[in-house]
Design a protein around this nucleic acid. Structure first.
Lengths: 115, 115
DNA sequence: AACTTATATAAGTCATGGATTATATGATGT
DNA sequence: ACATCATATAATCCATGACTTATATAAGTT
C-alpha cells in the first residue's frame, strides 16, 4: 500500500497524530479511536497493522501491551514528494530550506542566529 | 474526497507532477498518461474531474482545448498536516521555517541575504 | 490449571473507486 | 450543414478496502 493510500484513511491519520505526541499502547489508541470514530477494536487493530506494514509505525512489547511509535520514514517520502509544489506557495522559504537542508549555509545561519 | 485520497492514486499524482511543470491541455496529459499507464482517455478524464472537484486543478478553455493548471491550495493543507511530523526529522529547519513563514524575521533575513 | 486482560487474526459483507466501452457535447474547419 | 477534433459523461464491471462478529494467541493473575 502506497504511503498516500495509508494516509487516505482518517482513522490512520488520527492514529499518527496520537503517536506524534509520543508512544501509545494499542489499548489507549483503541480507546481514543473508538470514542472518536465509533469503530471496533479489531478495526483499529487492522489499521495498526496497515501502519506497521507500510512502515509508518513500529511496535515493541511491554508485558502484555503493544507499544506503538511513529516512524517518520514514509512521512519523509511524502514530504519530499510535496517539495516540488512547495515552491508554488513559499518560493523564498523553499529556496532557503533547500540550502539549509544541504547544509551549505550552516555556519552563516548559526552566526546570524547567535545575536 | 479528502486530499490524501486524491493523492492516493498514482495517475493523479503523475498528473499533478506534469502540471507542476506548467499548464497542460487535457490532450497532452492524456497522451503522457496513456503512454505511462496504459489507460483510456475517459479514465484520464475522470481523474482530471477528481482533481478539479477536489481543488487540486483548475481549467480554462482555449479553443476546443481544456487547459489544466495546478492549484496548490489542497497541497498546502497536506503540507500543513505534515508539519507536526517534520519536526521529527528536521528539528532545526522546522523551527526556523516556522518563524520565516510567520514573517517575523523578514527584514533580518533580507539583510543577511544581501551580502 | 483456570481466568482475565491485551491484542491480533479469520471470515464474510458491503460500499466505493478505478477501469472499461459507448456515447454525448461542443467548438473548428470545410 | 457536415465532418472532425477535443473532451466529458453514462453505464457497467470488478477489485479492493474498511468494517463486522467470532475466535485465536499469548502474557499476567489468582
Amino acid at each position: 500500500m502506497h504511503a498516500f493510500d495509508v494516509l487516505g484513511d482518517p482513522v490512520r491519520r488520527r492514529i499518527l497524530e496520537l503517536l506524534a505526541g509520543g508512544e501509545q499502547s494499542s489499548g489507549s489508541i483503541v480507546e481514543v479511536i473508538q470514542h472518536e470514530f465509533g469503530i471496533s477494536q479489531p478495526a483499529v487493530s487492522q489499521h495498526l497493522k496497515v501502519l506497521r506494514e507500510s512502515g509508518f509505525a513500529t511496535v515493541r512489547a511491554d508485558k502484555q501491551k503493544r507499544i506503538y511509535a511513529v516512524d517518520t520514514a514514509p512521512l519523509k517520502e511524502v514530504d519530499q514528494w510535496l517539495e516540488r509544489f512547495r515552491a508554488f506557495w513559499e518560493p523564498r522559504l523553499e529556496a532557503l530550506a533547500t540550502e539549509i537542508a544541504r547544509g551549505k549555509r550552516k555556519r552563516r545561519l548559526e552566526d546570524s542566529d547567535r545575536g
